Amino acid sequence: MGDWADLPGVRTWYETEGTGDPLVLLHGGFCTNDTWGPLRADLAAAYRVLLPERRAHGHTPDVPGPLSYTDMADDTVAFLESVVGGPAHLVGWSDGGVVALLVAAARPDLVRRAVVIGANSRPGPECFAEPSMLDTMTPDGAELAFFREMYAAVSPDGAGHWPVVAAKMLDMWRTEPAMTDGDLARVTAPVLVMTGDDDLMTLEHTVSLYRAMPQGQLAVIPGASHLVPLERPDLVSRLILEHLAQEKVETMMPVRRAAGADGAPAF
Rank of each mutant, 00 (worst) to 15 (best):
residue 182 G to W: 01
residue 190 P to F: 01
residue 189 A to V: 08
residue 167 A to W: 00
residue 189 A to H: 08
residue 174 R to N: 05
residue 181 D to I: 05
residue 165 V to T: 15
residue 168 K to E: 05
residue 180 T to W: 04
residue 167 A to S: 15
residue 191 V to T: 13
residue 185 A to N: 09
residue 186 R to Y: 04
residue 171 D to R: 15
residue 186 R to W: 01
residue 168 K to N: 13
residue 174 R to V: 01
residue 168 K to V: 10
residue 186 R to C: 09
residue 181 D to H: 12
residue 182 G to E: 07
residue 187 V to P: 01
residue 191 V to L: 06
residue 192 L to I: 13
residue 171 D to N: 15
residue 167 A to H: 14
residue 174 R to L: 00
residue 178 A to L: 08
residue 177 P to Y: 02
residue 184 L to Q: 03
residue 181 D to P: 07
residue 181 D to L: 07
residue 172 M to A: 12
residue 178 A to K: 10
residue 179 M to W: 04
residue 185 A to C: 06
residue 163 P to N: 14
residue 187 V to N: 04
residue 165 V to A: 14
residue 171 D to W: 10
residue 192 L to A: 12
residue 176 E to Y: 07
residue 186 R to V: 02
residue 172 M to D: 03
residue 189 A to C: 11
residue 167 A to L: 11
residue 179 M to Q: 11
residue 186 R to F: 00
residue 178 A to I: 02
residue 179 M to A: 09
residue 180 T to G: 05
residue 182 G to I: 02
residue 174 R to T: 05
residue 180 T to K: 06
residue 184 L to S: 00
residue 180 T to R: 05
residue 184 L to V: 01
residue 189 A to Y: 05
residue 179 M to Y: 02
residue 185 A to W: 03
residue 175 T to D: 07
residue 174 R to D: 03
residue 177 P to W: 03
residue 178 A to T: 12
residue 182 G to Q: 03
residue 181 D to K: 10
residue 180 T to P: 03
residue 180 T to C: 06
residue 165 V to L: 13
residue 170 L to S: 12
residue 182 G to S: 10
residue 178 A to G: 10
residue 177 P to R: 02
residue 175 T to F: 00
residue 175 T to I: 11
residue 187 V to D: 01
residue 174 R to F: 00
residue 175 T to Q: 11
residue 163 P to I: 11
residue 181 D to M: 08
residue 166 A to W: 10
residue 179 M to L: 15
residue 183 D to I: 01
